[in-house]
Amino acid sequence: MTIVMQRLHLTHPLHFVIGLTLWSAWFVTVYGGHAVACEVMPPDPEQGVFTLVNALLLMVSLAAVALLAALTVGCYRMSKHHAGRLSFNARVSAGLYLFSTFGVLFAAMPIIGIPPCL
């Protein structure tokens, strides 16, 4: 376990892909969850955007944002602790986490504006 933790240290280039993998996972969850929700329990169109579906999707998105934001901060701090290769890795990872955070925020915006199943 400790080996894994050492390997997954925030200066490891694996973090280049973790942020966007989380973004993808979020994306698949929201897209897939939405499709299933519309199939299984489509809300009445009269309800507009104030439906359980929108609320659940929004919660998942906010959780993803919180996680990604925390990782952004972590990587950013780590980049200041190191120099050279490790700093480079942490800096690029921080950028990618930041992008993923905004990616989730941005792609989640329609959830507050569009009724789910029309």
Binding site: P45, E46, G113, I114, P115, L118
Partner: peptide, 8 residues
């Protein structure tokens, strides 16, 4: 896009 929805 909103205006094009088939809202009731």
């Amino acid at each position: 896009g909103q205006r094009m929805l088939t809202l009731p």
